Amino acid sequence: MGPGGNVVVLPVVAGRVVRDPALTTFEAMLDGWRSQQLARGLAFSTISAREQVVRRFQGYCNEWPWVWTMVLADEWFTDLRVHRRVAHSTLRSVQGALRQFCWYVTDPTYGWAAECEARFGTHPVQVVTEANAVAHVQANESRPTKRAFTHAELQDFLDHADEQVLRAQTLGRKGWLAAYRDAVVFKIAYSYGLRRNEVRMLDVTDFGANPHGPGFGAFGVAYVRHGKAMRGAPPKRRSVLTVWDWTSEVLAEWIHEIRPAYRPGPRDRALFPSERGERIGLSGLNRTFARYRRELGLSDGLDMHSLRRSYVTHLIESGFDALFVQQQVGHEHASTTSLYTCVSSDFRTRTLTRALTKTLDQLPSTLEER
């Protein structure tokens, strides 16, 4: 019997029941924690990711939760930082998942401490505290090298992507279709300031007309259905208005002329299909982006998310209202949008020049009044 009088179900491995009380208890803990998180309305993906963290820690230290210590946790966190070289934000996320699990198994309400004491003579404790947890002290935790494309770099990158299509066609390679798709993915990610998964999850039906922008035709608005969610919440939706005049041409050509070469079925709606599945994968996009960047000799500080940073930056430089830009990219706070803005020195110079000119123009009249 488990806490609360519930029967602890013995796990099944390779078709046989495992009668290891320690493993049984550990699996029952995870089951109970999963139910608690489901009751809180957390997303299935969040719950699954947290469970994997707990299993990884258990595998690393080869100890059960009722004998975990802060020393064991410190050793794992050190290994993640020194040998795995995980990002600051990743380490904090790992620590958060482990802390949540420890909160659950040490909460008297769920009875696991008493159960473990009765079974194993010891009980679980909290192994992640303020003493050994990463502090969240700044809004932007990306590496300092991460930045937006300059206009020239972006043009070179997109031109290079287009050249891969022509090269494959000239050599008679089958890869021209995938190269064409990847080039369009990068253009659309920039066109709407989309995150990687947001552009990957677009369907052909996720576009509509904008009555205030008839020149864009059927592609005046992009309906993003898989936006970045708040922790534990479902994906956020938003509508992004088309702003660049070439975007609708790129989409129309891709959807009506090129995408049919993948021979999608009547129910296949993915805007960017894959040769092996319904839609393109994130790892493939990352590899292609990195290869193009390497071939052009561009900075490692440019990644696929830089297309989103560039969108924000270029809109600001083009004179778009900051609130409009914030709504386009789906940021809750203007301060978040400002972190994405990497305006060029030329833009800063032009802005300063306009401000000084305006001041100087007003100066004579001010002196006359005096």
Score class of each variant (00 low, 15 high):
residue 278 E to R: 14
residue 289 F to N: 06
residue 279 R to S: 11
residue 301 G to S: 10
residue 306 S to Y: 07
residue 257 E to H: 13
residue 288 T to D: 15
residue 269 R to K: 13
residue 244 W to C: 01
residue 223 Y to I: 09
residue 272 F to Q: 02
residue 279 R to H: 13
residue 212 H to I: 04
residue 241 L to K: 12
residue 283 S to G: 11
residue 309 R to H: 15
residue 223 Y to Q: 11
residue 228 K to R: 08
residue 250 V to S: 01
residue 250 V to G: 05
residue 256 H to K: 04
residue 234 P to M: 06
residue 310 S to Y: 06
residue 267 R to M: 11
residue 293 R to K: 08
residue 280 I to Q: 11
residue 306 S to E: 03
residue 235 P to F: 03
residue 264 P to V: 14
residue 278 E to M: 08
residue 312 V to C: 10
residue 212 H to G: 10
residue 284 G to L: 04
residue 240 V to R: 04
residue 212 H to E: 15
residue 302 L to G: 07
residue 225 R to M: 13
residue 299 S to I: 01
residue 237 R to E: 14
residue 308 R to I: 02
residue 312 V to F: 01
residue 212 H to M: 09
residue 275 E to P: 00
residue 288 T to A: 14
residue 274 S to K: 02
residue 217 G to F: 07
residue 256 H to D: 13
residue 220 G to Q: 03
residue 286 N to I: 12
residue 258 I to G: 00
residue 300 D to A: 14
residue 262 Y to R: 04
residue 234 P to T: 03
residue 291 R to W: 08
residue 287 R to F: 02
residue 247 T to M: 09
residue 274 S to V: 07
residue 301 G to L: 02
residue 278 E to N: 11
residue 237 R to F: 07
residue 290 A to G: 09
residue 282 L to G: 15
residue 255 I to A: 01
residue 291 R to M: 10
residue 305 H to G: 09
residue 215 G to N: 13
residue 223 Y to E: 11
residue 280 I to P: 01
residue 244 W to P: 00
residue 283 S to W: 14
residue 309 R to S: 09
residue 272 F to E: 02
residue 289 F to L: 12
residue 266 P to F: 07
residue 285 L to N: 12
residue 263 R to I: 06
residue 304 M to I: 15
residue 244 W to S: 07
residue 285 L to A: 08
residue 229 A to L: 03
residue 231 R to I: 05
residue 267 R to Y: 11
residue 273 P to S: 06
residue 313 T to A: 05
residue 285 L to C: 14
residue 244 W to I: 06
residue 304 M to P: 05
residue 313 T to C: 06
residue 258 I to H: 13
residue 247 T to A: 10
residue 224 V to C: 06
residue 237 R to H: 12
residue 217 G to S: 04
residue 302 L to T: 04
residue 309 R to G: 06
